[in-house]
Design a protein around this nucleic acid. Sequence first.
DNA 1: TATGAATGAGGATTCATTCAT
DNA 2: TATGAATGAATCCTCATTCAT
Lengths: 178, 178, 178, 178
Amino acid sequence: MTEKQLQIVETALHLFAEMGFDAVSTNKIAQEAGVSEGLIFRHFQNKLGLLNAIMQIGAEKIALFSEQIEILATPEEKIQAVLELPFHIKEDEYPFWKLLNGLKWQNQYYDQTAVAPIRNIIEKAFKDMNYSNPTTETDLILAYTDGLATSILLKSTEVDKNELLKTLRKKYNWILKK
Amino acid sequence: MTEKQLQIVETALHLFAEMGFDAVSTNKIAQEAGVSEGLIFRHFQNKLGLLNAIMQIGAEKIALFSEQIEILATPEEKIQAVLELPFHIKEDEYPFWKLLNGLKWQNQYYDQTAVAPIRNIIEKAFKDMNYSNPTTETDLILAYTDGLATSILLKSTEVDKNELLKTLRKKYNWILKK
Amino acid sequence: MTEKQLQIVETALHLFAEMGFDAVSTNKIAQEAGVSEGLIFRHFQNKLGLLNAIMQIGAEKIALFSEQIEILATPEEKIQAVLELPFHIKEDEYPFWKLLNGLKWQNQYYDQTAVAPIRNIIEKAFKDMNYSNPTTETDLILAYTDGLATSILLKSTEVDKNELLKTLRKKYNWILKK
Amino acid sequence: MTEKQLQIVETALHLFAEMGFDAVSTNKIAQEAGVSEGLIFRHFQNKLGLLNAIMQIGAEKIALFSEQIEILATPEEKIQAVLELPFHIKEDEYPFWKLLNGLKWQNQYYDQTAVAPIRNIIEKAFKDMNYSNPTTETDLILAYTDGLATSILLKSTEVDKNELLKTLRKKYNWILKK
DNA sequence: TATGAATGAGGATTCATTCAT
DNA sequence: TATGAATGAATCCTCATTCAT
């Protein structure tokens, strides 16, 4: 990716994350990125192509996350790691996660392949732990993860992440109790 | 509200919920509602006015929920009731909740006054139970609620709600453990 | 058709005829027609829809021509009538014929169904006259008609139509000779 | 002309001929010619310059035709030769003639100097034959030529050129009759 | 010579909104 | 109340053209 392509992608990501894909015009992206509008289309074909490029970059980051989790020793550690994922998102990755979460609610654009690897890890972990209903347990864990991420991403200034994590950890033995 | 106003509101709600506010044109709403485009503006001033009307109706429903919860006897029951809210959303209320969740990620449109009453209930419940950190506990409960709602709303066909609720309930004593 | 629709169709026809379909912008049509650009799309969906509307109107005129020719008594009269068609095009119909001729050379847009009825008349006439090769004779007549139309439409100021017709008529007995 | 220049000219000619000058983008020409878009402008200044280059090459070919006709012995032979020109266009010259014919109908682009020499030959021939109205006779011959060319160029697959020429030739004595 | 990134004006089209009826 | 014609600003996108390499 050239520098200008990166500028476009970064700018678009931030704008999409804050305002939503449809609420951001290509003109606005171009202006804020300091490039001509035409350049967006030369590099990404169309607005959706730009979104896809952004999502692909994000999907690669998620894949990295997954790999790091998969090498953990025990299923319990894996589950805990996923549950704590929201707490380890760096601030500069917030826009991507905001975008991903926002798109979930628009069935024209949402492609859930990006997050699928994470679900697989959890489901396998519960199976390894011989849970009778690994799918349901997975749903519960992911719902919790999802809710925590939402809280952190949207209320970052108000929520005390450390306090939240500390309190969450006290509940682990119960969360995992069969 | 006249019948035509209702048609407009209902149609818009469904479309907004599935596609997102910005992705739905007033023309599309008018067509699907079987009314003229002008009528939307006569009744709701502008597109945002229509959204506000929808949100107000929804806020009233949430207020009803809140009232029903507030009359419960113990704080534990209240917390449990909130946590189980997602399981009691009727299918015809899905669109409103989808819309609300989608809008959360677009800071131009989101108004969180609608859901504030619920937070107040939980926070007060934890205080009544003499928790040392009621705010954090509230955040955790609401995050879980939020995640469960997301799961149910977006994967309604795949998720077995009964199974999920049964498994969730097994964890209550721990969830609430100080 | 409302008055504004007619204005659009008329203006577009003239511009398309003089400059070619692709060389005329919808903005230009709107300005010259004294309407907003949006109105073109409300009434005709898109630029091609506008072209189709124009062509349909023209096709109806051609159909009228055909009917008038078909009621002639003898095959010879019919052939002569077709050959003289170019001389009877009224000035206000020039734009349509210019457009039709220009489009012939662009295989994206050309639809030859409009002129098909005329060919049928000629071919049948030659059959009725027991020509051994009615198809070829038809090709020759239509080529001549086509060339005459081209000459008249493009060089109207320079060509003396009366003189041309007079000279043409001297050749009829030979043109039709088997 | 370098090889790349030729590629550009050839490709552009074919595309212009099939789709029309305005309907072909320089980008498309570059892609189909396998060169960069910038090269078109280095060699031909602008899109119109490319068209002019094409037309000039064609004009030279027409000039060659003219010379071959002018050396014929009698005026009758010359007229016949022009009338039969369409039958002697080689398939690889079709695109140029198609382009020329298409441009006739777009008064921004059309330059009729290319075909002027042919008209002069005919007009002189009729004068040499002491026709009283050589201009009108010329118009008729050229209209016929033009119509025949149109038929051959646009319906090459359907029209049997040999049959057409044979039938045409039967009519010569009459065509030329004063 | 040749490339391809970059531009910005202009393209068709859609949009929310207004207005006469 | 309700329609639907009409608007014009804004949308996404394409275009011919330029320029650094």
